[in-house]
Design a protein around this nucleic acid. Sequence first.
RNA 1: UGCCCGAUGGUGUAAUGGUAGCACAAACGACUCUGACUCGUUUUGUCUAGGUUCGAGUCCUAGUCGGGCAGCCA
Length: 599
Amino acid sequence: MSVENNDRSAAAAPAPSDFIRDIVAQHVAEKRYQKIVTRFPPEPNGYLHIGHSKSICLNFGIARENNGQCNLRFDDTNPVKEDTEYVDAIIADVKWLIDGWADHCLAYKAKGAHPEKQTVNGREDFFIAPALSSQPSTTSEPFFASDYFEAIYAYAVELIKRGKAYVDDLTPEETDAYRGAPDKPGRESPWRNRSIAENLELFTRMRAGDFPNGAKSLRAKIDMAAPNVWLRDPLLYRIRHVAHHHAGDKWCIYPLYDFAHCLSDYIEGVTHSICTLEFEVHRPLYDWILENLDLPRPLPRQYEFAKLNLSYMVFSKRRLIQLVQEKLVHGWDDPRLPTISGARRRGIPASALRKLSATVGVTKFDGLTDIAVFEHCIREELNAAAQRRLAVLRPLKLVLTNIPEGEVIECDATNNPQDESPTTRKIALTREVYIETEDFAEVPPPKYFRLKPGGEVRLKYACIIKCDEIVKAPDGSIKELRCTADLSTRAGGPNVDRKVKGTIHWVSAQTCIDAEVRLYDRLFTVAEPAAEEDFKKHINPHSLEIVTAKLEFALAGALPDERYQFERLGYFTLDAKDSTPARPVFNRTITLKDTWAKK
RNA sequence: UGCCCGAUGGUGUAAUGGUAGCACAAACGACUCUGACUCGUUUUGUCUAGGUUCGAGUCCUAGUCGGGCAGCCA
């Protein structure tokens, strides 16, 4: 069964509260805005990861809770780094993550629609986004900053006309040298005081393609001595003679983040522009641009929160790219990666990602969250939703000597004991079964509840068995176990209530199917790999173990997106990519909690 | 060394001048046809020093420690 929409625990939980939601609530109370509008603005230059899911849940969550709107907007202002491959992957990831949860606040716009020139307050330089449709369709698409290039260009022209921006001839190297240092003021460019007319002409020629890359730039005229270096005449536009994945070959000048972002927010009517802590020092520039354009109020405002860090993981794009390109993992959707596509393939439900976001909260403290919190969220969702099945990862043959060959004894197995009215399925008990190798010990350690020579154990859903004999191979290894089944302890039998300490899982050797099972473990052996000199030296050599397992027959019909608990082992899901009907492949999402193995 | 931000148990967070609470983790126990789940119990905390106040985790000052910022990246 699919558990993407399983939000039962989240629904029962109180609405999240944090300092940003407090601010929004206050704005709602004072009716500052007609509607709360947020946005999630990834640059399409890589895959989304679990860190992004916190931002997605925050932005879409706030929109949802306030009956507002959240725009998925591609911050695609740097064509040399971006690609439609990432656009498509990001859309898929966002939709998956918020599916059934926030559709009504995910805004879409008509395909190909651009902001239209409007007269606002008697001026003709302002643009606003076209009408939004709340329902996605084949004729709708997310938002792209590149759709606003014409409008952003017009705002740049307006800034020049106001004497607040100028065309600079300094090279990138010179610009860097002129900027000074954090504790030393910068120097003004010799081109800083060109006339407005000259700036206008030069900027027009920049757009027309009259200059090569890097020859000129458009800069805001602020203060080269500002303590905040982002106010030292920041660049607004650079020349890049390159086609854009979304805007085509229309442009050879592209706005930088700081200029494009605040204006994109403004154009879309964003009220709360929520970003991560590293943009704190950009906020004065964000405000400067909007205020110096004298735009009609209310203006969007930027708020910053701490991004998510999880122990035993890396999130930085730089490191993720290394892992993929150096083939330390198998692609962006490798189930060991913290990418959203990797998490999805691994079988982690979207609801677990949402639960994690709600659990870690939103603050300005840059901490490191224990991966155990995430694992708890995954188990909590899966425990409620996953169907139970029996599977043996490392088979050991066991012969029930008192069951005749060819006889099949049907047993009822519970599908999910967590359900209000649990359903059952039939499983076959036969003369030969497989049990887990580690469920038998010739020389049992103390407090061993499992099978041992002469010992008894219950085969789950079947009956109690007693180990009579160990059959060994010539090399001394255990070939098979010979046991007797006490059929009177079956469900419905007279001795069903007989207690033995251990209950183990098993499958019928006659009816089971073979499957490749991929056992994933954490990718790194140290809690904070990103803090190491070389994080790659701390990759867990056992992060992936592949076994050929024996599965109960019911698993032959498993479908991708279904989650199963293999009893006593963990949660598993069919690998949508590598499975074939002849050779199913299952991924272990996560083990069950094991308080015994640790001792 | 300039500017900005932050600091509450092992970890993440709440307490909005009035009993330091929750979750995870850990330990112990109960239950158990999953050594799971569930339930119960327990351990552990306000960075330091001053100040304001009847009262400070919260407000003020100074310090300490940690993070961010000097791309024609976002």
